[in-house]
């Protein structure tokens, strides 16, 4: 059975159609890359999967492990294993990363009918994940994204992914704004996360991240539709020829 199935998905934002019939199937163990020019609807797809308010699904549906999640609240989707790494992570001053993560981990544990981990156990896990991403342990004590550099924000998203262990991670332009070292660290994090039991969707404008995280499938989005699908070589072709030739 497929992990994620998107069928004939139509989405409007402020009554303006953005996605015009997306079909997509992702199986466990796969990495998909969704590429496309600015304004093609890539970020809309990422956000609508996570159930962001303001994105109206006018037709079609999204199922996770066979369950229709189209009408679910964002936190209900999260508990079903959907994770979104934000393109622009928002700041929450005063709430420490640690406190935030613990609240999330507890919610997930309770969702599975388990006891939340003890504070000691949790701190251990969080520190291990932080060190894998070359983040200073102090990082965990700072306010969520508060005063973080662009790179730190993106690494923080990956940190949360590693700790929450979702079934499906949707990474929205996680590679943008990263220098080459940070890109390597983030890619290592994604590769460490990849497993036969989960799946990743990389939403990206550039091929650069795909040198580090090789996708099984590449989809090209234009004007709210998938206009082309292929394997990793499609991304290289896009890199070489740009998006223009797709219109022809």
């Amino acid at each position: 059975m497929s992990l994620l199935r998107v069928e004939d998905l139509h989405v409007e934002v402020d009554a303006k159609p953005i996605l015009a019939g997306i079909d997509l199937e992702v199986r466990a163990g796969e990495v998909h890359a969704v590429m496309g020019p600015n304004g093609s609807g890539k970020s809309t797809l990422a956000n609508v999967l996570a159930g962001r308010p303001g994105y109206d699904v006018t037709r079609g549906c999204v199922t996770v492990d066979g369950e229709d999640v189209t009408g679910l609240e964002p936190e209900e989707r999260s508990l079903r294993g959907l994770f979104l790494a934000f393109q622009y992570p928002i700041e929450i001053p005063g709430v420490s990363n640690m406190e935030f993560l613990k609240a999330a981990v507890d919610a997930h544990a309770l969702g599975r009918g388990e006891d939340p981990p003890s504070a000691v156990e949790f701190v251990k896990r969080a520190r291990a994940a932080a060190s894998r991403l070359a983040l200073n342990p102090d990082f965990l004590k700072r306010g969520v994204n508060d005063g973080f550099s662009g790179g730190e924000k993106k690494r923080n998203e990956i940190l949360q992914m590693l700790i929450l262990e979702p079934r499906l991670a949707v990474l929205d332009e996680t590679d943008s704004g990263l220098d080459i070292d940070a890109l390597g660290v983030v890619a290592d994090g994604i590769n460490a996360f990849r497993d036969v039991g989960n799946a990743v969707i990389l939403v990206t404008h550039y091929q650069r991240l795909l040198n580090y995280v090789v996708p099984d499938h590449v989809h090209v989005l234009a004007n709210g539709r998938i206009v082309r699908s292929g394997d990793a070589s499609l991304a290289l072709e896009l890199e070489e020829r740009g998006y223009g030739w797709l219109d022809a």
């Binding site: 964002p74 936190e75 929450l164």
Partner: peptide, 26 residues
């Protein structure tokens, strides 16, 4: 946006608001 980030990580809105308010008062 803050609420959505919390919800996306599985935290229900009431708990999220309490957490954000606590952070505001830190």
């Amino acid at each position: 946006e803050q609420l959505f980030l919390c919800q996306q990580r599985g935290i229900e809105p009431e708990r999220a608001v309490a957490m954000i308010v606590n952070g505001f008062c830190r």
